[in-house]
Amino acid sequence: MMQFHDAAKTNRSSGKVARPRLLAAATWAGTVLVLSACGGGGGGDAAPAASAQVPVTLGTAGPGDAQNHLPLAVGHSWQFEGTITEGANSSPTSTTVTIPSTRDVGGATALVLRESVVAGGQTTVIEEALVKDANGVAVLAAADDVLSKALVPYWELRFPLTAGAPFVQLDKTGLDFGEDLDGDGRNELVSLYSSVQVVGVESVTVPFGTFPTAVHVRRVLELTVRRSSDGLAFDATETGDAWFAPSVGWVQRKSELVGMGEKLSSLERLTAYTPGSLGSAGASQGATSTTGSTLATEPAWRRVLRASASAR
């Protein structure tokens, strides 16, 4: 799932002054980062601020997905065609999103959401494990690395899908980035803050058809990684927009990444949709469970932060 500021911006959760404006981004199916003032990957002496993130509690009463804007079932598939633009260069993309199976995550039966993106002659595959209940769609598992494990669980969306105030999807500070980018023997730290808001109901026309009551959802993700060798911080903000139609789900997605004098954006529009084993019922059952680590390649924001913050 699912964005750029200047050096005067402050951290929403702690009031700390933000770092210089830099670059990072993430896909919609996935995560704002602002690093706490605790220096590099070896730790810090500042106590973390209280998190504003909405905790994931499954199985409680809630409003549900009244118009089935997120029909999730094993066998569902969505096909998108689009473009990705970096600077003055644009290239076509083809994305297939499928729900091939379920898997056990901490005793919960989660749907495996697999996204395969073909662009520039390369294929990128990202998997997440999701659960949909009466209060929203929660991500329970993502890539099998230190940072991804520290992010889950979190709410991808919250019900009801009505316009209003955003909810805090992620509010994490001082996480292990999982890599030593500057070669000083210490992993860098990264922090993030992400908010999600329903913008409203809009009519959207894509190759698959016209959807007059698509719900427009926007996620704003901010990230910061600080080099432990010199304290230099690298900030990023990514804005992701998605439109969901009743009984179909995603019909259009776009994102924008800006920073370090660069701009990376993408637009995807639905060309085909195939209902799963329960049609548009919005849940799955009787599927063969798969276990083990999910497969994933890194999101764009991680690749860019690595390139920006690595020792030069």
Rank of each mutant, 00 (worst) to 15 (best):
M2Q: 09
F4T: 12
F4C: 06
A8Y: 04
K9D: 13
T10C: 06
N11D: 15
R12Y: 09
S14K: 01
K16Y: 07
K16L: 09
A25N: 10
T27H: 03
T31L: 04
V32A: 09
G42D: 00
G42I: 00
G43E: 00
S51E: 00
A52S: 05
Q53N: 03
V54A: 15
T57K: 15
T60F: 02
T60I: 12
D65N: 12
H69Y: 15
A73P: 01
G75K: 05
S77R: 12
N89L: 12
T93C: 09
T95Q: 08
V97H: 02
I99D: 00
P100Y: 05
R103E: 12
G106C: 07
R114F: 00
T123E: 11
E128D: 08
E128Q: 10
V131E: 05
A138W: 02
V139W: 02
V146Q: 04
S148F: 00
K149W: 01
W155K: 14
R158Q: 15
L161R: 15
L161I: 06
T162P: 04
P166H: 07
G174E: 10
L181P: 06
D182W: 06
N187S: 14
N187M: 07
S191P: 09
V196G: 07
Q197V: 11
G200I: 13
V201T: 15
E202N: 13
S203F: 02
S203M: 02
P207D: 03
A214Y: 01
V215Q: 11
R219D: 13
R219W: 09
L221N: 13
E222A: 11
L223K: 14
V225H: 04
R227T: 03
S228E: 00
S229V: 03
A233K: 07
D235C: 04
P246Q: 11
P246N: 11
S247C: 06
V251E: 14
Q252S: 15
S255D: 12
E268R: 09
L270V: 11
T271D: 02
T274Y: 02
G279P: 03
A283P: 02
S284L: 06
A287G: 10
T290A: 05
L295R: 08
L295S: 12
T297I: 04
E298H: 09
R303M: 08
V304R: 14
V304L: 15
R306V: 13
A307G: 10
A307E: 12
